[in-house]
């Protein structure tokens, strides 16, 4: 009963969010300086008057704004994201093609940063004031202030140019076509290491700081004293009564950070030439291919909402109080 209600509430929330995002897209196109038709054509110097006129007709730009708005929303609902004049392809096809690599990158970075952050944060919090705490806190402070793209470049400099451990860019070897599936997976994994670590490191720093603070707070809570008064060992108190309690806020926060994570993926994919949505964003920015950019923004927002749902689910498993009230 209440589960159904909360599901309904979630779904309307998502629908509303998508509506807002689509509206932002619509407003953006129409607030651009100059002719919206030129925006859609891309400022490629394609000033062929007949071509512009055709776009104007195709997109109904000669119609009143609310007709345009409803027709745009209808298109979004039917997953019609428009046509890229520059790439001569449907935007939804272009995006779908690149979705896999981005999911692989962001999800592995998300998992890595969360696990690493909880681990290092707990370690620092438990050993508060020791050199371990100091080292972890300092590393987190520095990583937190590092531009993602620059950190990626530095990893390339060290691990691929100097040490030659991992490839510097790309998704798979050029000869990948002749690989067995197993070899192919291994090859992709080798290519994945540097981008995933780059993207994960920054957020790991955030989660480490948060987990450290959270664990220290939990360690002062009354129920930890109760556990001690029960005669439990410190190890058991940590596992049974502190870690889970401290990780809750970190997971919630991680969900809120999903948007930033996707944003980070754009830069990381640019640095490592990872053929995902981020690289597509960079290429479309360079080419001023606006229909693709608008479509990307919409899809990435939906991706963020999906990650939010995922963290919400994890948090529900960790904390019985959520959803019960």
């Amino acid at each position: 009963m209440s589960a159904v209600k909360s599901l309904v509430s979630k779904l309307t929330g998502i629908a509303f969010a998508i509506l807002v995002i689509a509206t932002i897209n619509f407003v953006l196109v129409h607030s651009a300086p100059g002719d919206p038709a030129l925006v859609i054509a891309g400022q490629s110097g394609a000033t062929d008057a007949e071509f512009i006129e055709q776009i104007r007709r195709d997109y109904g730009l000669d119609q009143p704004w609310f007709v345009q708005y409803t027709s745009y929303l209808t298109k979004v609902v039917t997953l019609d994201l428009g046509y890229s004049v520059r790439q001569r392809a449907d935007v939804s096809d272009l995006i779908l093609e690149r979705l896999g690599p981005t999911l692989l990158l962001t999800l592995s970075a998300f998992g890595l940063s969360l696990i690493g952050g909880v681990f290092f944060g707990a370690l620092a919090g438990l050993r508060q004031g020791t050199w371990k705490d100091l080292a972890i806190s300092l590393a987190a402070l520095i990583l937190y202030a590092t531009p993602v793209f620059w950190f990626g470049l530095m990893l390339v400099l060290v691990f691929s140019i100097n040490l030659e451990w991992f490839p510097a860019f790309g998704y798979a070897n050029i000869r990948a076509a002749s690989f067995t599936p197993w070899q192919y997976a291994l090859d992709v994994a080798r290519h994945l290491v540097l981008p995933a670590v780059t993207l994960a490191a920054i957020y790991m720093a955030v989660y480490t700081r948060l987990m450290r603070a959270s664990l220290i707070e939990v360690s002062h809570e009354d129920h930890v004293k109760t556990a001690r008064a029960k005669g439990l060992t410190e190890g058991r108190i940590l596992r049974g009564h502190m870690l889970r309690n401290a990780a809750g806020p970190v997971i919630t926060f991680a969900g809120l950070q999903a948007g930033a994570l996707i944003g980070g993926a754009v830069v990381v994919e640019t640095v490592f030439s990872w053929p995902g949505l981020g690289r597509l964003t960079f290429d479309s920015v360079t080419a001023r291919d606006y229909p693709v950019l608008l479509g990307l923004f919409l899809v990435m927002s939906i991706l963020v909402i999906a990650i939010n749902l995922l963290t919400d689910l994890i948090h529900r498993l960790v904390d019985p109080r959520i959803g019960a009230r």
């Binding site: 944003g263 927002s301 963020v304």
Partner: peptide, 23 residues
């Protein structure tokens, strides 16, 4: 509600879009 939606939007991507379109 409005703030929450804005917080979920990938803010860097929105910034790219804004700057690219507004030159």
């Amino acid at each position: 509600r409005f703030t929450e939606i804005f917080q979920t939007i990938p803010n860097f991507v929105l910034a790219i879009l804004l700057v690219a379109i507004l030159t």
